[in-house]
Amino acid sequence: MNIFRFAGDMTHLISVLVLLLKIYATKSCSGISLKTQELYALVFLSRYLDLFTNYISLYNTLMKLVFIGSSLAIVWCMRMHHAVKRSYDKEVDTFRHYYLVLACFVLATLVNEQFTLREVCWAFSIYLEAVAILPQLVLLQRSGNVDNLTGQYVFFLGAYRAFYILNWIYRYFTEQYFTRWIACIAGIVQTALYADFFYYYFISWKNNAKLQLPA
C-alpha cells in the first residue's frame, strides 16, 4: 500500500459519501444518472467476487463491503425510495448502458490475464468501470447546470483513478512483477473521459462561478 493508492481509495470513498450526502440531505437524486449507479454496482459485484475467499486485509475487505453496500443502496434508493425516485430524471438519463455491459463482457472474454471465471470477471469490471461514467457525463451535459454536490461527486470519482495511475507508476518502479497493464490502460481511458469535465470544473472553481457544461 503506497500513499497514491491510499489517496485514491480515500478520494473514491469521499465521492461515495458526497453522493450519499446529496441523496440523504436533499432527498433528491436530480442530476444523478441511475444507469451509472447500476453500472458501478455491477463493477463492484463482478470485481469483488473473491470478497470471502481471498482475504487480503481488514482494510481491503471493509472497503469492498462499503463500495458494494453503498452502490446497491444508491440504486435501491433511486428505484424504490418514494421521494428520491420522483426526482430521478428518467427522460434525460437515456444512455443505452446495456451496450456498454455487452461490449465490456465480450472484450473481457477476449482480453484477460487468464481465461478463468475470476479473471474474466475482473477484466470485465475493469473495462466496465472505465466507461461507467458515460451516462452520468451525458446527463450532466444535457441538464446543463450542475449542482455543487453532484459536481463534487463526479470530480472525486474521476480523481480517484488518477491517483491509482500514480500508484501503478510507483509500483512499476518499486516492484519486480508488474503486469497490471489491463488496469493501467483502462484506468488511463477512464481518467481521460473526465478530462473535459475536469477542465470545466477547474474553470468554475477559478471564476468562482457555477459549473456549466456546454450542451
Binding site: 490475464e113 500508484n167 503486469t179
Partner: peptide
C-alpha cells in the same frame, strides 16, 4: 508466480 494475480487493489 509469473503473472500478477493477487488483485490486492480495489
Amino acid at each position: 508466480e509469473g503473472i500478477y494475480h493477487d488483485h490486492d487493489e480495489l
